[in-house]
Computed example of a mutant assay.
Amino acid sequence: MLKYLLILAISVLNANSAFAGWVDYPALYDVTGVAPDDVLNVREGQSASTPIINTLAPNQRNVEIVAVSNDERWGLVSFPEGSGWVSMRYMARQPGQDPQFLPKPLGCGGTEPFWGLSINNQTAQFDMMGESPRTYTPIWEDIPSGMQAVSYAVKMQGNGEDITAIISRNQCSDGMSDSVYGFRIDVILSGQSGNRYYTGCCSLN
């Protein structure tokens, strides 16, 4: 199963070919250069003539840019129940984001059943609807040998279980909204009760 997940994660090379510089995304940005009494418009498309569907505050921080347009002038952002495009002229990338390492903290989850996995530097927490939250310790992570950081493998242990997660830089939908996520995740839980396999999406926290 793990070999299959690695092959699946590497396939994102083709899936992301429509965007420029995609290996550096998703990434966190701050809004900049917008007047204090103004807002940054989130538009339906990659043009100032397309409808405004949301706005960002002039001092808004930690905005996740999921992808950029081919000309790198527009960035794709998500918000509850939707997604849209902002002008990259007014976005400043936060320092210290190296795509060679899995970005943390990272919040992941899926539906049917509803589950969540939060990964931090020292711990990870898995939540399943109807079950008590469980805490794990990440013990190993890596990227595909000899390749760009298009995907990451993470292994976690705790509660008599192992969690193996493959997280790939690939646009992802939760299947319930129009929000676009920048990471896909495949998770295998292995323990005394057997193996469980889940898929979902992740976003930068």
Rank of each mutant, 00 (worst) to 15 (best):
N121P: 08
V63N: 01
E64K: 01
G96T: 07
R93N: 04
R43E: 06
A92W: 02
L56I: 00
N70R: 13
V66N: 01
D24E: 14
V23K: 07
S78H: 02
M88V: 02
P138F: 02
P138S: 05
F101T: 05
V23E: 10
A27M: 02
M129F: 13
F79K: 06
P99C: 14
Q97G: 08
D127C: 06
L40I: 06
G109P: 05
Y90S: 00
G45R: 13
T137L: 12
S78N: 08
N62V: 02
L8D: 07
S83T: 04
S87K: 12
V39M: 04
P133H: 00
G75A: 03
D98C: 06
P138D: 01
N16K: 09
P138E: 02
S132P: 09
P95K: 04
T111G: 10
V66R: 00
N70C: 12
F101C: 06
D71C: 12
V31E: 06
C108M: 13
D71E: 10
G107E: 15
G33Y: 04
D30S: 09
V77G: 01
V68L: 06
N14K: 09
I119H: 04
Q46P: 03
P80G: 14
Q46S: 03
L13M: 12
V68S: 02
Q125C: 08
P95H: 06
D38E: 10
Y90K: 03
E64G: 03
W115I: 07
N59W: 08
E131I: 05
W115Y: 13
V77Y: 06
L28S: 14
W85Y: 11
Y29L: 06
Q122C: 15
G33K: 13
D127T: 14
V31L: 05
N120D: 14
N121I: 04
Q97L: 04
A57E: 09
V86F: 01
Y136G: 07
P95L: 12
E44S: 15
T55I: 05
N16F: 08
P103K: 04
S83N: 05
V66P: 00
S87D: 14
V12S: 12
T135G: 09
W74E: 03
L28V: 07
